[in-house]
C-alpha cells in the first residue's frame, strides 16, 4: 500500500506525498473500524450487476475489497515480472496502476477499475482528512493546497476580497492539545 500511495500522490518538490503523509496508516485504521467492515454499506443480497448509473453493486466491504484487491495486484505483478508490486520501478508501477484504472487487469471477481477507484478515494481521504485519523501527517495535504483546517471563523476575512491567507493549518488535535479534551459525539 505504501508503494501504491507513493505513486498516487508522490513525494516531490511540492512536498510530501501520500506515503509520507501516513495514508497507509490511515487506511489501516479505517479498514479495521466500522466503515471498513461495512457499517454504512447496504449489504443485503441479491447482488447483481447494474448499469453505471446504479453505482456500486458488489458484495465486498471496504476491508474485504482491499484485502482481495491488494493481493490480486501483487499476484498480477509477480506473474508479469516475477517481482511484487512494491519492487517494481516507479515507471512500471505507474503503468500497472494505469492498467488497473482502465479495468485491464483481471482481479476477478473484483473489477480492477472499481478497486482502483477505492484506492484513489482512500488515498485522498488519507491525504486530506484531519490528522487525528492518522493521515495528512504534518498537515502535508492541507499545506499543499492551502487549506486552513479546523479553523473557526472567517467572518472578518471573507469579504476582504482576495486576501492572502498565510496562517498555518490547524487540526482538531491542535485545539485539543491546548485545553481539556472535548466530548466526542457521533
Amino acid at each position: 500500500m505504501d508503494a501504491i500511495a507513493s505513486r498516487l500522490i508522490p513525494n516531490d518538490d511540492l512536498g510530501p506525498g501520500a506515503k509520507e503523509a501516513g495514508v497507509t496508516f490511515f487506511l489501516d485504521q479505517q479498514l479495521a473500524g466500522g466503515w471498513g467492515t461495512g457499517d454504512h454499506f447496504y449489504r443485503q443480497a441479491p447482488f447483481e450487476a447494474g448499469t453505471p448509473e446504479q453505482g456500486y453493486q458488489l458484495s465486498f466491504t471496504p476491508a474485504q475489497m482491499f484485502r482481495l484487491g491488494l493481493g490480486k495486484l501483487d499476484e498480477a505483478s509477480r506473474s508479469a515480472s516475477k517481482k511484487g508490486f512494491a519492487e517494481l520501478s516507479p515507471a512500471d508501477q505507474d503503468a500497472m496502476l494505469k492498467r488497473m484504472q482502465a479495468g485491464e487487469l483481471d482481479f476477478s471477481p473484483l473489477p480492477s477499475a472499481v478497486f482502483f477507484q477505492a484506492l484513489l478515494d482512500g488515498t485522498m481521504e488519507g491525504f486530506f482528512s484531519d490528522p487525528i485519523y492518522g493521515g495528512n501527517s504534518g498537515m502535508a495535504g492541507w499545506t499543499l493546497v492551502g487549506f486552513p483546517g479546523a479553523y473557526a471563523s472567517y467572518a472578518n476575512d471573507i469579504d476582504r476580497h482576495g486576501v492572502a491567507w498565510t496562517r498555518p493549518p490547524v487540526s482538531i488535535a491542535d485545539a485539543h492539545a491546548h485545553g481539556a479534551a472535548g466530548e466526542a459525539h457521533p
Binding site: 481521504e125 484531519d130 479546523a150 485545539a175 466530548e183 459525539h185
Partner: peptide, 19 residues
C-alpha cells in the same frame, strides 16, 4: 454539546462517513 468545535470541523466524519 453535540455540534461544538473543534470536533465538528471534521470532513471525514460528517461528509465521508455520513455522521
Amino acid at each position: 454539546p453535540d455540534f461544538q468545535a473543534p470536533t465538528v470541523h471534521d470532513e471525514l466524519k460528517y461528509v465521508r462517513r455520513h455522521a
